[in-house]
C-alpha cells in the first residue's frame, strides 16, 4: 500500500515544523494507539522492559516545551526507536511491537523505516517527508509505503486499507493541529520562533 499527501500549515516556518516533527513525544501523541515511543539501543529491544520503564506521563511538547529540550530528545539519524502500537479495529486490537529506524534526517528531509509484529501478523513500513516553504507557511510533503503480512493480510483485507488510511489520516490531522498550536503561539509570543531559529 502506498500513501502520500501534502499537509499545509499556515503561519509557521519550516524550522518550527522541523523541530516539532523531530520530537518523539509529539509523534507518539499524534499516532493513534501508540502506547509508548522511546529510543532503543538496537533493532531487537526487550519490549516488556521498555513498557515497564516508559514514563507514565509525557513531558510537554511544543509550544510549552523548550526548543532545547526538544532538540535534546529529537530523532537522530541512524537511531532506533521502539513503539508499542495498538491498532484497534472494533473487536480486533492487535498490539504491534514496532521498531523504527531513522534512515535519513537532514533538514528539510527525513526518512524512516520500521517493522512491527503482533501474533501471526506483521507489517513493514517506510516513510518520509520533506518540508517546503509555501506562500502562507509550510507544506509538508509526505509519503508512506506499508506492507502487511500474515493473518491480517489474509483475513483482514477488507479493513486494512481503511484502517491504514485512518491511522495516517489521524496522524497528520493531529500533527497539523499541534503545529497550528505552535504557529499560533509563535505569532502571539514571537519568542518561540526566534528560539527555534537559533537552533539551526
Amino acid at each position: 500500500m502506498e500513501f502520500s499527501g501534502t499537509v499545509s500549515i499556515d503561519g509557521t516556518t519550516t524550522e518550527e515544523v522541523w523541530l516539532a516533527l523531530s520530537d518523539p513525544v509529539m509523534i507518539k501523541q499524534a499516532l493513534p494507539g501508540c502506547q509508548f515511543l522511546v529510543e532503543c539501543e538496537d533493532e531487537d529491544p526487550d519490549f516488556d522492559a521498555l513498557a515497564a520503564s516508559a514514563p507514565e506521563e509525557d513531558p510537554p511538547t511544543l509550544p510549552e516545551a523548550s526548543a532545547e529540550d526538544i532538540a535534546e530528545r529529537a530523532f537522530e539519524e541512524g537511531g532506533h526507536y521502539a513503539a508499542l502500537m495498538e491498532i484497534s479495529v472494533g473487536s480486533v486490537s492487535p498490539s504491534f511491537e514496532t521498531v523504527v529506524t531513522i534512515e535519513e534526517r537532514e533538514f528539510p528531509r527525513m526518512h524512516a523505516a520500521g517493522e512491527g509484529s503482533a501474533s501471526s501478523s506483521s507489517f513493514e513500513m517506510s516513510s518520509g517527508m520533506e518540508l517546503a516553504e509555501s506562500e502562507d507557511g509550510v507544506d509538508v510533503e509526505w509519503w508512506a509505503e506499508a506492507d502487511v503480512f500474515g493473518r491480517v493480510a489474509q483475513m483482514g483485507q477488507r479493513v486494512i486499507n481503511p484502517v491504514a488510511n485512518r491511522v495516517v489520516g489521524r496522524f497528520f490531522d493531529q500533527v497539523e493541529k499541534q503545529l497550528q498550536d505552535v504557529s499560533t503561539d509563535s505569532e502571539s509570543s514571537g519568542g518561540l520562533r526566534s528560539r527555534v531559529s537559533s537552533l539551526f
Partner: peptide, 10 residues
C-alpha cells in the same frame, strides 16, 4: 500482493 501474500484468503 507484491509480497506474495494471498489477499483472497477466505
Amino acid at each position: 500482493d507484491d509480497n506474495g501474500q494471498l489477499v483472497t484468503g477466505s
